[in-house]
């Protein structure tokens, strides 16, 4: 699954852990599912490595917002491309000052990348069968924005 960061394919240096191998990797750079994060909160925020959490629209962003200082990555899942909740999650994370990686995962394909980036995503995990290098032209197809976005909060009337 190609991972796109800053419009280039990069290797994923993060390790996704589950219940079983959490203890073994707790001091490495890991991404934990939201449930595990909630369960082992204390332990995780005090561990050595960098911490990422994977969340979806049914889960409470609030909990992440309370521990932003401990997080270096938030992976937001799109169970279907039509599930727009992730766009708001990214926006809310950025406005809370989160400067780490916000990664889009799941049904993440070309025609939503630009909106995602504008909402604050900077990493995109794209399914193999939907990836081609042409995908890089998905960004900035429309160069004028009426609304502010994560990299420039000014709407058109303040630009």
């Amino acid at each position: 699954m190609p991972l796109l960061i800053n419009r280039a394919v990069v290797d994923d240096s993060w390790l996704l852990v589950d219940e079983d191998n959490l203890t073994a990797h707790i001091n490495e750079d890991i991404v934990v599912p939201y449930e595990l994060f909630a369960q082992h909160l204390e332990q995780l925020v005090n561990a050595e490595g960098k911490l990422g959490v994977r969340i979806n629209g049914d889960q409470a962003l609030e909990l992440l917002l309370q521990h932003l200082d401990a997080l270096s990555l938030v992976a937001i899942e799109f169970p279907a491309f039509t599930d727009g909740r992730g766009f708001s999650f990214a926006r809310m994370l950025r406005r809370a000052g989160f400067a780490g990686q916000i990664r889009a995962e799941g049904d993440v394909t070309r025609d939503r990348l630009d909106h995602m980036q504008r909402c604050g995503f900077d990493a995109f995990a794209i399914p193999d069968e939907r990836y081609s290098d042409a995908i890089l032209s998905a960004f900035d197809e429309v160069p004028v924005h009426y609304q502010g976005s994560a990299d420039d909060e000014r709407p058109i009337f303040r630009q």
């Binding site: 491309f81 039509t82 599930d83 727009g84 766009f87 708001s88 926006r91 939503r112 630009d114 909106h115 995602m116 504008r118 909402c119 429309v142 924005h145 009426y146 609304q147 976005s149 709407p155 058109i156």
Partner: peptide, 14 residues
């Protein structure tokens, strides 16, 4: 109209 047009956050509402 301007605010709604191509709003990046609200293109996939319920």
């Amino acid at each position: 109209r301007q605010w709604t047009t191509l709003h990046p956050e609200f293109a996939y509402l319920p």
